[in-house]
Simulated scan of single mutants.
Amino acid sequence: MRRALVLGAEHEMGALLCQSLAQYHWQITATIADPSQPFSLSANLTLAELTKQDGELLDDLVADTDTVFLHLPDPILDRRVIFSLDEILKRVIRYQSNLVITTNVYDTCHSWLNSLIFWQKKKPVDYALPKKYASS
């Protein structure tokens, strides 16, 4: 049975991910930061409360999963993930898990001034592949 870790399951997208994964018989560990939020439980779902101080628990959860699902919420609405994307990526790489990132935030309005500044160099995105993919 495939094992999923859904970070931020108390938010709408996390809850929808849990429901979809349950339909396909995944074993799900869903993390929540706010236990006062209502949440729908299922037979193949384990609920874990996760706070910023629970880095070791996050390590254990990532180590015991095949795929980590992370929804990046809209920062304008003052919703943030507990652990940064960088912290989650390090753990996913360390334990050679898969990572699925979802978002509903899109930058659709570009300033025309930025395109005129030809000397502006954008910082490249750092990434790392698990060793089994790096050699192919």
Rank of each mutant, 00 (worst) to 15 (best):
L70M: 11
E49Y: 05
N104S: 08
V100D: 06
T31D: 09
V62W: 00
R80I: 14
H110K: 10
H110W: 03
A43H: 08
S136L: 08
A48W: 01
L72Q: 13
T65E: 10
D78T: 01
V81I: 15
F39T: 06
K122L: 11
V100H: 05
I32D: 12
L113E: 08
R94Q: 14
D126C: 12
D60F: 10
Q37K: 15
A128R: 04
L129H: 11
A30M: 06
K52D: 13
D59A: 07
D78H: 11
V105F: 02
L41H: 10
A48F: 11
K90F: 03
S115P: 00
I88C: 00
N114H: 06
T108V: 12
P38L: 11
P73M: 12
E12R: 13
R3S: 15
R91P: 02
Q120C: 03
Q37V: 09
V68G: 15
P35F: 14
S40F: 06
L70S: 09
Q120G: 04
P124Y: 05
E10K: 11
L17S: 02
D74N: 12
A128G: 06
A33H: 13
H110C: 02
K123M: 08
D54A: 05
Y106A: 07
L89H: 11
D66V: 03
Q53F: 11
G14R: 00
T65L: 10
S36V: 04
L77N: 08
H25S: 15
S36R: 09
R2C: 07
T29N: 04
D59C: 04
Y127R: 07
G8Q: 07
P124I: 01
F39H: 12
V92Y: 09
A9P: 11
L21Q: 12
D66G: 03
D66F: 10
L85R: 03
I32L: 12
D126A: 14
K121M: 05
E56L: 11
V81L: 10
I32N: 12
P38H: 07
S136K: 15
V68M: 05
D59R: 08
A9C: 09
T67S: 08
Y95Q: 02
P73H: 06
G14S: 03
A22N: 09
I76G: 00
D86L: 02
L85S: 06
Q96I: 01
R3G: 07
R91K: 09
R80Q: 10
D64L: 09
A4G: 07
K123S: 13
A22D: 12
K132M: 14
R3M: 01
E12P: 01
N114R: 02
L57M: 10
D64Q: 07
V62C: 06
L89D: 04
L47N: 01
V100I: 11
Q37R: 15
I88F: 01
S20N: 04
S20I: 03
D60S: 14
Y106G: 03
V68N: 08
T102S: 14
L129R: 13
Y95G: 00
L7A: 04
C18Y: 00
N104V: 04
I82W: 03
D60Y: 09
Y133G: 08
S111V: 00
T103M: 01
I28D: 11
T108F: 01
A134Y: 15
Q96C: 09
S135K: 08
S97R: 12
A128F: 05
S115L: 05
T103V: 02
L129V: 15
L21G: 10
Q120D: 07
D66R: 04
I82K: 01
L5D: 04
W119M: 04
S111H: 01
R91D: 01
L116C: 13
S115V: 02
Q53Y: 10
V100A: 08
